[in-house]
Computed example of a mutant assay.
Amino acid sequence: MESTFRTPDTSPVVVGVDGSDSARTAAMWAAREAVRRERPLHIVYGADTDGRALYLSGEAVERVRANGRGLLDDTAQAVQAEHPGLRVTTEFSRADAVTSLHRAGALHGTIVVGNRGLGGFNSLMLGSVGLDVAAGAMAPVIVVRGVDGTEETGTVLAAFRDEHDLLYARYAAREAELRKGSLRLLHVWNILQSVGQVVSMLDGIDEIAGAHAEALQAVQDAVCEEFPDLEVRADAEKSVSVAGVLVEASRHADLLVMGGRRVPGPLGIARNLGRATHSVLHHAHCPVLLIPRTGSDFGSRS
């Protein structure tokens, strides 16, 4: 399978702002990522003035433009005050936020969005813009979560499904190298689903577990061969909730890397995130890097 994205060390960093505290947090986090990767930071504000042109007066449109450009300037100044050597560009877009970020990220960018909380339990939840960006992007998307007042652990966590996830494990390894940290490959398998799929081929749970461990070991070996100086740990866990295990493991990671599980919506367009992906984006305790999968993965239900 060919990659539709560049490796982290060559990707521009694109971040969306909208005036919310979570978006500002995401912008500052994205700036640190851009410095780490030695890439410029591109800050985008999607005003949606084109979509609302029939409902806004000329004066209202001008106010939106002034407020948006003011927000871009303020964010850029805050970023450059913290990172004086960072190259920062801004973009005021007349399109909506989702379209603006998809265009800015294109095929070879890394898009960063914030987690928009509403207070109470809902503060755990990802907003609709973030979900739509993650679901429709052809570029990697990072949802910034769990970064307020937390210390770095030095660990990048990679969710592993099967041997076809070597591409995403390699991406996660590069992220760990950028952070001068370690990589943890985590494979979670649902015992009930696995039994249903392979009962005709395997005699028992031990053989099922062995098959999963063998696939995980093969990926770990390949990553270690390519990244000989990187500490790589691989774990396999049984659970009825893949998302639950990944969310708990994210408490001890600086970044969770996942291959994007997308399923077709109307007309076969992949705009819907799979169940596990959706849950992790809502509840993870660290930023989540979601990497797009190709059309052959649309049938995944995880």
Rank of each mutant, 00 (worst) to 15 (best):
Ser182Leu: 08
Gly68His: 03
Leu246Val: 01
Leu166His: 07
Ser93Met: 00
Val223Pro: 01
Glu231Ser: 15
Glu231His: 15
Leu192Thr: 14
Leu107Arg: 08
Trp189Gln: 00
Leu281Gly: 04
Arg161Lys: 09
Leu178Cys: 01
Gly196Gln: 06
Thr90Ile: 08
Gly51Gln: 08
Gly120Leu: 02
Ser22Lys: 07
Ala104Leu: 00
His83Asn: 01
Phe92Leu: 03
Ser296His: 12
Glu59Thr: 11
Pro228His: 03
Glu214Thr: 12
Pro84Met: 09
Tyr45Arg: 12
His83Phe: 09
Asp221Met: 10
Val15Trp: 13
Val141His: 05
Gly181Trp: 09
Leu157Trp: 05
Leu289Ser: 08
Ser3Gln: 14
His83Glu: 06
Ser194Glu: 14
Met28Phe: 13
Arg261Lys: 15
Cys224Phe: 09
Leu230Met: 03
Phe5Val: 05
Leu157Lys: 00
Leu157Asn: 05
Asp21Ala: 15
Arg94Ser: 06
His285Phe: 14
Thr110Asp: 03
Leu216Val: 03
Val242His: 02
Val17Asn: 03
Asn272Ser: 15
Leu166Glu: 05
Val188Ile: 14
Val98Ala: 06
Glu226Pro: 11
Ala209Asp: 14
Lys238Asp: 04
Met125Leu: 12
Ala30Arg: 04
Gly259Phe: 07
Gly46Val: 13
Asp132Met: 10
Ala23Asn: 03
Gly204Pro: 00
Leu101Thr: 08
Thr153Leu: 13
Glu59Asp: 15
Asp254Phe: 00
Thr99Ala: 10
Arg145Thr: 07
Ser200Glu: 02
